[in-house]
């Protein structure tokens, strides 16, 4: 009781917090880029003519989306070494983040591809493009544009989810928060400050992604037809 807040005790550790923030940002951006790339490949596989490929993707998505991220991390970091696969905490963490979030980006991007009308593909083919060219020049940009808001939400969720990799010892913002509170015992203040940092990161992602969207999809003058997807955390 009679708790006296002492934020000064937290701000003393600002270099650590700054470093953690940078790690969190770097991890998030790197992982998100991979998630969009793999998600695109996954979405293509999910729509491929090969049944086995389709089923593999469906099973992957269902398993990943129906088990907790934390447990997946434990399997990657503590479980895989018994198969002779030894990953350091950072690699296991980033790998885990990418595996988990790609399940979501795959579904999001698939919805985007589905929203592109067949006539767009035919129109590309009719001027002599190959299927690969049609995908690259005609399909992918409008498809991503259609689901851009969902991708941005997923980006935020991914960034927030990175705090969980502290559980396997990755040194990012959350684990620095733990470290600081075990040395200064100002737990509440530390977590309050760090929560504010995460909130700021969330707003930054939304803001900068909106700006990026305006550059990437500058052609849209009307409000885009939004496809809302159930987004998931954790």
């Amino acid at each position: 009781m009679d708790y006296v807040f002492q934020f000064r005790e937290v701000f003393r550790y600002w270099p650590l917090l700054a470093e953690g923030t940078v790690v969190t940002i770097a991890m998030s951006i790197g992982a998100m880029v991979l998630c969009v790339i793999f998600g695109t490949l996954g979405a293509l596989a999910r729509r491929s003519r090969t049944m086995i490929l389709r089923w593999l993707v469906i099973i992957y998505i269902d398993i990943i989306r129906n088990t907790p991220f934390l447990v997946q991390l434990f399997i990657l970091f503590f479980g895989l070494p018994s198969l002779g696969i030894r990953l350091d905490a950072m690699s296991a963490g980033v790998l885990g983040i990418v595996i988990y979030n790609t399940a979501f980006t795959t579904e999001i991007i698939r919805a985007g591809l589905q929203a592109i009308h067949k006539s767009q593909v035919e129109s590309g083919l009719s001027i002599g493009m190959s299927r690969v060219q049609v995908f690259l020049y005609v399909v992918i940009v409008p498809a991503l544009q259609k689901v851009y808001p969902a991708l941005v939400s997923q980006f935020v969720l991914l960034m927030l989810g990175t705090s969980i990799v502290s559980a396997i010892g990755v040194e990012e913002l959350t684990s620095y928060a733990h470290q600081i509170q075990t040395t200064n015992f100002r737990s509440i203040e530390v977590y309050l400050v760090v929560i504010c940092i995460y909130m700021a990161l969330t707003l930054m992602i939304r803001f900068s992604m909106r700006a990026l969207g305006r550059v990437l999809f500058r052609y849209r003058h009307r409000r885009p037809g939004r496809i809302t997807l159930p987004v998931e955390q954790l």
Binding site: Q120, S123, F217, Y219
Partner: peptide, 30 residues
């Protein structure tokens, strides 16, 4: 298909490209 032009009922222009790029994309890419 480069020798045969096809014009569709529903126009099917590429919405993310300018008019100029809609026309040049076949020329540069194909």
């Amino acid at each position: 298909r480069q020798e045969v032009g096809f014009v569709f009922q529903s126009f099917n222009l590429f919405p993310h490209l300018t008019v100029e790029r809609n026309i040049t994309i076949g020329l540069t890419v194909v």
